[in-house]
Amino acid sequence: MSAATDATKPAGPARVWGVMGEFAGPTELLHGCLAVREAGWRKWDAYSPFPVHGLELAMGLKPSRVSMIVLLGAMCGAGGGFALQYWTSAVAYPMVVQGKPFGAWEPFTPVTFELGVLLASFGAILGMLTLNVLPRWHHPLFKKERFLKVSDDRFMVALEARDRNWSLEGATRLLKQAGATNIDVVEE
């Protein structure tokens, strides 16, 4: 019984989401990802129990855009925080405190900083979730019992059917060439 026969079997009535294959460890995953990337695929991903360092190079990932969202959050928080303090202290409710000017910026520093950090942190976590299209509680991959082992100690690569290079045979062949085992068709 070979994994290859499994994968080339007709997929049945359900639409095919993609093909997944398993790699023995981080090194094998790294080599496998290099092979998939060199074949020109775009809609694919590697799955590992922890972020394998160096894999982003093998996969050719661009720098994450989370940083921009964090910067945006920091500017909104700090700017909004300063504006709130200036408006309430100098415009809406001016009150003499120790004879200081109403709009002096110095006492506004701590709250400006804190609100900047607060919104930047929300930017970090919400930006990460948005870029990863999460939360998404259901996914075709979760139907595969074997995929659930990725959170334990498995390393996988899945090629998706929406890629322009997609063909079931081609994808299966590519995964085999890349060194994958237990190649399996994932249905929607």
């Binding site: 590697a46 990460m128 959170s151």
Partner: peptide, 10 residues
């Protein structure tokens, strides 16, 4: 989903 693209943003 433990995906590398996810980990990268994470």
């Amino acid at each position: 989903r433990f995906s590398m693209r996810g980990w990268w943003n994470y």
